[in-house]
Design a protein around this nucleic acid. Structure first.
Lengths: 245, 245
DNA sequence: ACCTGAACACCGTTCAAGT
DNA sequence: ACCTGAACACCGTTCAAGT
C-alpha cells in the first residue's frame, strides 16, 4: 500500500508532471458511491462517472475492466464498512444480533449499492473475521460444528436477504414506492370481512408495523429458535440424533 | 372480459380484416416470460419483445405504458401462479410451510422474473386469500391479532426475500456465479486455522449445505419460534404482557 | 383503434491515437 | 502507463404518419 504510493510518487517526480495518473480505483469507488446515493442506482454509468471525475467516460475502464468488476469492488467496500468496527461480545446472542444489525445498517445507509451487489459474495478478510465470530458464538450456545455451520448460513443469508429486500424497496423512485405502498394498504384495509375475516381483523395491526421492528422480530425469532435447539441437543446427550451423510 | 372479446371480434368482422389487433397484454406477458427464462432478465427489452411478437418494438407500448407497467404485470402473474393451487391445511404449520414453499418454487421456476419484481407488492386477489389463510393459521396457533399480524409480515417477507435472494444468485450469468462460488469456498476452506479457528472447524460443513436445506431450515426455525411464543402467551394468561400501541 | 418507423437521448465496450 | 475520442451495437420513449 505505502510502497505502491511511494512508487507512484517517484514515477511522477521523474516525469516532472503533477502525477502519472490522476485516477485510481479508490477515487472511482468514491465517485460511484456519491452518484448512487445522490441519483439512485440506475444513475451509475461510465458517462456519469466521467463527468463526476472530470475525465473521459472510458478512462474508468483502465482501472476496472468492466462494470461488473466495479460492482464487485463496491460490494467489498460496503461489507468492509459494515464490519470494520465489529467486535464480538461475550454474550453469543449479542454477537449475532450485532452482526445482523450491522448488515442492515450498511444496506440502508447505501441502499443503491446494496441492491446492486447483494448477490455477490464479498472477497474480504473482514467477512472471514465476522464468520468466525458468528460460528464461535453458535458453538458457545452449545451447537455442534455441523449445526453451527448451517445456522450461521441461515442467519447470515437471512440478514443479507432481508436487508437487500428493504434496500430494494427504498431504492424504487419515490413515486413508484408510494404508489405500491398505498395500493397494498388500501387493498387489505378495505378487504371484505366476509371473504377475508382473519385479514380484516388484523388489518390495522398490519398497517402499524414498521420495518425496523419487523427486522428485529425476524432476528429475534431466529435466535430464539437457535437457542431452543441448542438447549434440546445439550439436554439429549451433547450429540445430535440425526444420522450422518 | 367476454364482452370485450366479443366487441373486438365484431369490430374486426365489420372491418373485414383478420383482427383489429393481433397483440394483447396476455400475449405480451407470455412473450416476456419466454424471453426472460430463455435469455435472462437483461434480455427483456422492447426490441426483443418486438422480434418475439413479430411486431414493431414500439407496438408493445400500446398495451403497457412503460417498462415499469410491464414489470408490475409480471409480478402479478408470478404471484398468481404461485398461489392459484394453494389450499389451507387443517394444521397451521402445514399451511404456513406450504405458502413459503410456493413462493420459493415460483421464484426459482422464473428466477429472472422474480429478480425484476420482488420489490413490487402484487395487486392480486390471490394474495389476499393467502394472507387471510396465513393470519388465520397464526390465530389458530394461539396468537393475538397483533402478534399474528407481525409474524405474518415476518414470515411472508422472509420467504419473499430469501426466494428473491436465491433467484438473484441463480440469475447471474453462469460465469460470474461460478467465479463467485469458487472464490468464496476457496476463501473459507483455506482460511488460517490460527486466525479463524471456528470457521476452519466448520468449513467442510459449510461447503456441504445446499440451498433447499437452508431454506427449509430458515422456515423451520421461524415456525418453531412462533410456536414457542404462542405457547408462552397462552400459558401466561391468554394475553400478551407488553404495553399498548 | 392499433401499428409503423424515424428520431432522440441515452447505454457499455472496443480500439486506434495521443502524451 | 494512462487518457482521449470516435465508433459500434445496443437501450426506453416520443411522435407524426399510416391503415
Amino acid at each position: 500500500m505505502t510502497d505502491a504510493k511511494t512508487k507512484a510518487a517517484a514515477t511522477s517526480a521523474v516525469r516532472g508532471r503533477r502525477s502519472a495518473s490522476f485516477l485510481n480505483p479508490g477515487l472511482v469507488l468514491d465517485a460511484a458511491m456519491v452518484i448512487i446515493e445522490r441519483d439512485g442506482p440506475d444513475a451509475l454509468t461510465f458517462r456519469r462517472l466521467g463527468i463526476e471525475l472530470k475525465a473521459d467516460h472510458t478512462a474508468v475502464l483502465r482501472h476496472f475492466g468492466s462494470k461488473d468488476d466495479l460492482l464487485i469492488a463496491l460490494a467489498d467496500r460496503l461489507m468492509e464498512e459494515a464490519l470494520a468496527s465489529f467486535v464480538p461480545s461475550e454474550n453469543w446472542r449479542e454477537t449475532l444480533l450485532s452482526l445482523a444489525r450491522r448488515i442492515r445498517s450498511a444496506a440502508l445507509a447505501h441502499p443503491g449499492v446494496a441492491v446492486l451487489v447483494a448477490a455477490r459474495p464479498p472477497r474480504q478478510a473482514e467477512v472471514l473475521r465476522a464468520a468466525d465470530a458468528a460460528i464461535g458464538a453458535l458453538r458457545q450456545a452449545g451447537l455442534s460444528a455441523r449445526d453451527a455451520a448451517m445456522y450461521y448460513l441461515v442467519l447470515a443469508d437471512a440478514s443479507m436477504a432481508a436487508a437487500a429486500y428493504e434496500a430494494a424497496i427504498v431504492s424504487l423512485d419515490s413515486g413508484a414506492r408510494e404508489g405500491d405502498q398505498r395500493a397494498w394498504r388500501r387493498q387489505y384495509l378495505t378487504a371484505s370481512p366476509q371473504k377475508y375475516p382473519h385479514l380484516a381483523s388484523a388489518a390495522q395491526h398490519l398497517a402499524d408495523v414498521n420495518d425496523q421492528d419487523e427486522f428485529e422480530t425476524l432476528i429475534g425469532l431466529l435466535l430464539d429458535a437457535v437457542e431452543l435447539r441448542a438447549q434440546t441437543h445439550t439436554g439429549n446427550a451433547g450429540e445430535t440424533e440425526r444420522g450422518g451423510t
